[in-house]
Amino acid sequence: MSKEITHWLDDLLAEIEGIVVRRKSSRRVRVDVPADALPALLELLQGRAGYIHLSAISCVDWIKEDEFELVYHVWSYESHSLVSAHIRIAREPGVYLSVYDLYQPAAFFERDIHEMYGIHFEGSPNMEKFILTEWDGPPPMRKEFDSEAYINEHLSWQNYNPEWLQELVAEGGGVIIPPEEQRFSQKKK
């Protein structure tokens, strides 16, 4: 039966313009679509192919290409298969449409992505802070955010010091980390 569904899915997907379908395995399909075709695709998948479960939206920051990639993973309980729809949007201004009206769980995913990457989703019910409620820096998952520079500025931390371990080693335990294997950023240049 699953064969039938996949053929049928191919016909359905062919209705969308500019679509690239890649079959990753018998139950995984990757599709790349232009950003403006995504709502139509999701509507098709949900309304006519039974992909009723939006299990995640993930985001990748391609800083060199100046783009964000958004991946919508939708699952069908009937054919037990996953369709991942990839789109690319411009990094600036980083605005996209919400799919909340199609899949309500999108509200949480979009809120999370907004917080971590600063992408604004138009029509999403809530774009407030989600987990980082006490964070007022830039969205931390963007590639231009330099985590190491941030901690060097705001926090003090220490390298492992092999001397600490000498006591332990004397008792017959512990591991000594030779200087060449210590953390790179603290190594004396």
Binding site: Y150, S156, W157, Q158, Y160
Partner: peptide
């Protein structure tokens, strides 16, 4: 000393501070 999250913006590193 921060352990494997030493580079994370979200965790405090040295508790005894």
């Amino acid at each position: 000393n921060g352990g494997m999250y030493w580079q994370s913006y979200a965790t405090a590193k040295k508790l005894d501070e």
